[in-house]
Design a protein around this nucleic acid. Structure first.
Length: 255
DNA sequence: AAAACCTCCAACCGCCAAGCG
DNA sequence: TCGCTTGGCGGTTGGAGGTTT
């Protein structure tokens, strides 16, 4: 972390004081969020717009939850991360009261180190052989630029974190999904939630009894998650075949 | 008691995309 | 079309506080 010394432009850096917090909070309560470039002018704060925005979003905003993540929050985070990758803002958007920074920090300090450690465990491969998971494959559909036509009957829409959305298609029935961007204004957040709900419900049904989603329960499960994560890292976010995201332990061994 | 080490997380940085003139 | 501004994001840093030696 940088010190309280000023930058070349004379802007203050480092930890925020209670007085600065109060000024920022009062300003946003008065004028509302947004127009971050005006915040320093309105408050007299010697901070850049980015610093003001970050302070508000990660600390001052109402309803921000503090303290350890609950078990269900971690579980949800794991699922969302498997689906979305490092789209922290998207993940945080579906964990009430948690900020993207919270999620990112938790992942980097709690889950990622554990994940790396478990990769080194020698018995993981053996345990993987005992696990059986049914691969769920969605109905194929074709991609089109006239996306509005497909909205109502193709809920397989995923936000990519930049405000735009991703659509995948299974052309030729080979399970290699092509992806294209979708303008954000053509899709409602409800569509994403609907998709996530359906996805998780389906997967819950399939894996129930075989897999506990608590990552601490089994090194084999953790290994399987790691395998998928690694694959996602290698291939980029949505450049995957369905077999890769719907993991198969036997396939994971070959990675 | 104190030095060394570790963990956590607030904050910064650089990049990107959208909007606008 | 181009360049600038702004908002937003993920990656990374480093200080504070806790723990171990």
């Amino acid at each position: 972390m940088t010190s309280h010394s000023s930058s070349g432009l004379g802007l203050k850096k480092g930890a925020w004081s209670a007085h600065e917090d109060m000024l920022l909070k009062n300003c946003i309560e008065q004028y509302g969020e947004g127009k971050w470039h005006l915040i320093p002018l309105r408050t007299g704060l010697n901070r850049c717009r980015k610093s003001c925005r970050l302070r508000w979003l990660n600390y001052l905003r109402p309803n921000i939850k503090r303290g350890d993540f609950a078990e269900d929050e971690v579980d949800l985070m794991l699922r969302l991360h498997k689906l979305l990758g490092n789209r922290w803002s998207l993940i945080a958007g579906r964990i009430p009261g948690r900020t993207a920074n919270d999620v990112k920090n938790y992942w980097n300090t709690h889950i990622q180190p554990r994940s790396k450690q478990q990769k080194k465990e020698p018995d993981a491969d053996e345990l993987l052989q005992d696990a059986t998971v049914t691969i769920i494959k969605p109905q194929p559909y074709t991609i089109s630029k006239t996306l509005n036509l497909y909205m109502s009957d193709n809920p397989q829409l995923i936000s990519n974190g930049g405000g735009s959305l991703i659509r995948s298609s299974n052309e030729g029935g080979n399970n290699n999904f092509n992806v294209s961007s979708v303008s954000p204004n053509v899709l409602l957040d409800d569509e994403i939630n609907k998709y996530l709900d359906e996805l998780f419900d389906d997967r819950e049904m399939e894996i129930e009894g075989d897999i506990e989603w608590s990552f601490a329960e089994s090194s084999a499960q953790a290994e399987a998650l790691n395998a998928v994560d690694q694959e996602e890292d290698n291939n980029g976010f949505f450049d995957f075949s369905l077999d890769e995201i719907m993991w198969n332990p036997m396939d994971s061994q070959q990675l």
